[in-house]
């Protein structure tokens, strides 16, 4: 496996630990986000996703561990090349939409005039041109959220960090947001976002990490995550035959006119050969790959089960 330097990654985190009032919220998270990727941080509520992102961005300091942001050991040094949409959205209510976007750009080093010009373009892109001179307090929650999102990309950052970007958005705006994320990736930006909605991660992520119990439980591609569970096979023989169960993998259960079982470790072909040779034939065969949702539930569920058992043992 080749060794890469921190400069080669958009984000690296090694053993990040954070405690609030003695309670460990993040317990040693490692992350490595490749440049130019869309990277999802998935986890149930309270998993430590937001705290991890805040530590990576330098909003809070980790109690232990190290991180780099765009190759910089001090996140502030990369500040002008980063965009951030926090989980708790926040804008000045008296500011106009265009000014709010330009202001956020100005904080990251973009000249005000250029910021206003880009803001107008971005607002038009997401169909909010009519709201450019509206005060934030007059916008709907979804519109304000989009404005804030535009504020986090107006300076064309190399890294965009989005904390639960889809929460609170209706399906139309969610689609706009997905399109915006893909457009930013195509521009060359790295996108790191947290979510607990699997559908978005499944559609968008090049790689993802699953955090649960304050620790990273999985890291890889969506396919890797799905591969943590065996595919489900639905096999229908030519003739129903109760004796067939003995020839199927353990755990096979009858379903309709056929059987359902997990994909054998050596694949489906040897099994099918045996079944054909035994004269059962194949009337129907469906192989269902597990969804990310199922993989997530299994990974997170096993962590929760372990924690529950630990708590019970401690009690």
């Amino acid at each position: 496996m080749p060794e890469q330097r921190a400069e080669d990654w958009a984000v690296t985190a090694t053993g990040l630990i954070k405690r609030f009032e003695g309670k460990q919220v993040v317990g040693g998270v490692d992350l490595a986000v490749p440049r130019g990727a869309i990277y999802g941080v998935l986890g149930p509520n309270g998993a430590g996703k937001t705290t991890t992102l805040r530590m990576i961005l330098g909003i809070i300091e980790p109690d232990e561990g190290y991180r780099t942001l765009l190759g910089c050991e001090r996140p502030r040094d990369a500040g002008d090349r980063v965009g951030y949409l926090p989980e708790e959205r926040g804008l000045y209510p008296a500011m106009k939409a265009r000014e709010a976007i330009a202001f956020m750009g100005a904080l990251r080093g973009l000249a005000w005039g250029e910021g206003r010009r880009r803001a107008a373009d971005l607002l038009a892109q997401v169909g909010l041109a009519h709201a450019a001179d509206e005060k934030i307090r007059k916008l709907s929650k979804g519109m304000a959220q989009l404005v804030q999102l535009l504020g986090s990309v107006v300076h064309r950052p190399d890294l965009i960090v989005l904390d639960e970007p889809f929460s609170g958005l209706d399906p139309v705006n969610q689609e706009k947001l997905e399109a915006l994320i893909l457009a930013e990736r195509d521009r060359g930006a790295t996108i790191l976002f947290s979510t607990h909605v699997m559908a978005h991660a499944e559609r968008l992520c090049d790689r993802l990490a699953i955090i649960a119990g304050g620790q990273r439980q999985f890291e890889g591609t969506v396919d890797d995550a799905r591969a943590t569970l065996p595919a489900q096979v639905h096999y229908q023989p030519r003739q129903p035959n109760p004796a067939l169960a003995a020839q199927l993998p353990a755990g096979a259960t009858p379903e309709g006119d056929g059987w359902r079982f997990a994909m054998p470790p050596d694949g489906i072909e040897p099994l099918l050969n045996r079944l054909i040779a035994a004269g059962h034939g194949i009337a129907g065969l469906t192989i269902e790959r597990p969804t990310l949702h199922e993989a997530f539930v299994r990974i997170v569920g096993s962590v929760e089960d372990r924690r529950f058992a630990d708590r019970k043992a401690a009690a």
């Binding site: 805040r54 961005l57 330098g58 909003i59 500040g79 980063v82 951030y84 926090p86 708790e88 959205r89 926040g90 804008l91 000045y92 209510p93 956020m104 904080l107 990251r108 804030q148 504020g151």
Partner: peptide
Amino acid sequence: NKVIEVLAAA
């Protein structure tokens, strides 16, 4: 207004 999170990040 929760703007502090945006400011503190930038």
